[in-house]
Amino acid sequence: MPAAERPDPAELPLPPLVDHHCHGVVRSELDSAAFEAFLTESDAPAALGTTFFDSQLGFAVRRWCPPLLGLEPHCPPAHYLARRRELGVREVTRRLLTASGIGAFLVDTGLPGDLTTPRELATASGGTAHEIVRLEHLAERTADTALTADDFLTGLADGVREAARTAAGFKSVAAYRYGLDFAPEPPAPAAVHTAAERWLAHRSDDPGAAARVTDPVLLRHLLWSAAHTGLPLQLHTGFGDPDLRLDRCDPLALTDFIRAVRPTGCTLILLHGYPYHRGAGYLAAVFPHVYADVGLALAHTGARAGAILAEMLELAPFGKVLFSTDAYGLPELYVVGARLFQEALAALVNGWVAEGAWSRRDAHRVAALLAADNARRVYGLGVASGRDT
């Protein structure tokens, strides 16, 4: 589409975005290799003679971020990284976060590394931040100090209850640790106790290899423990790094669990979804307690982000789709996630208005739902800025 005919995102009035699933950014300076590592889901360096900048995400970073640092769009990566080092990581983080248009961050704090806290994100951006507690990380921290299975299960129950007092929601990466094709019903207490004993013994014998919780019985126990708190529960679905088996991350595999958990009143949010995002949209359409996003997929599909968002909006009710970036490590990923979402949404709804399929008023209303209002409703943030963590 010629530039003169391309819909201007500014023509679509949006409230400050609510990024309902994201992570901290690194506090330290990054060399080129470390920076590029955040542009891919691969756990290996780029193939010989190639670069991760040569990807949809890499091109999107070069499109949107250089002007925020005083450079021309699409400048060479070496020029961009040199300018980044010249300004310093704190100034780059401040500039990029404040330019992202994100007013509230819901931060999954379960990833390792020297990452900014939710409060630091809020300070750098001028917005607000709220914590999302990763269940597996909570279990692993509890296991570090537990001497027996009883100690662990009591500590875990206390930890979930305490987290529910202050967090905006919970998150599970069961998709990584086992897959989504787990048994849907809550595990029996005796089975949970046996699984906890087995895991703790394994951790004692081989701490490095057994540190992570992967037992499906314990993962189900975590999910059901969170479901009974009344807080929203985020579930990773679809693509990610090679630590998962993508064929076992189809959100449709959760159908029986979705049915089973419904009586608890727990709201489930299916994250990312790609390439199964249409299935996530279907689940959001037929189950009242299921919501979905395409967060990570938009950044990684770059110039094709509009097609992915359009596929989600084919079937998912407009009050059931949320915005997220899944930004991690680089403040650039907040900018890219937000700009790609805004541009894709503007192009879609303005096109539908031009065709007569939507009214302008409905387009503006639905855009606000996706950008912020749905997340504020689901997480209980209210219509104004929520509490800082």
Score class of each variant (00 low, 15 high):
A4Q: 11
P9N: 00
P13Y: 00
P16Y: 00
V18L: 03
G24E: 03
R27V: 13
R27H: 13
E29N: 04
F35I: 08
D43Q: 08
F53D: 05
F59Q: 14
R62H: 08
P66T: 10
P73M: 00
P76K: 02
A82V: 08
A99L: 10
S100M: 10
A104M: 11
D114W: 06
H130D: 06
L135H: 11
L135R: 08
A168W: 06
G169H: 06
F170N: 09
S172L: 04
A174V: 15
L180K: 04
F182T: 07
F182P: 01
P187E: 02
T194R: 15
A201W: 05
H202S: 14
W224G: 00
G238L: 00
F239E: 13
G240V: 01
P242E: 01
P242Q: 07
D247C: 07
R248A: 14
A260I: 03
A284Y: 09
H289W: 01
V290P: 11
Y291S: 00
G295V: 09
I308A: 08
S324M: 02
L330T: 13
E332V: 04
A338W: 12
F341M: 01
A347P: 09
E355I: 02
A357I: 11
L369K: 10
L370N: 02
A371P: 12
A371K: 07
D373L: 12
R376N: 01
V383T: 15
V383L: 10
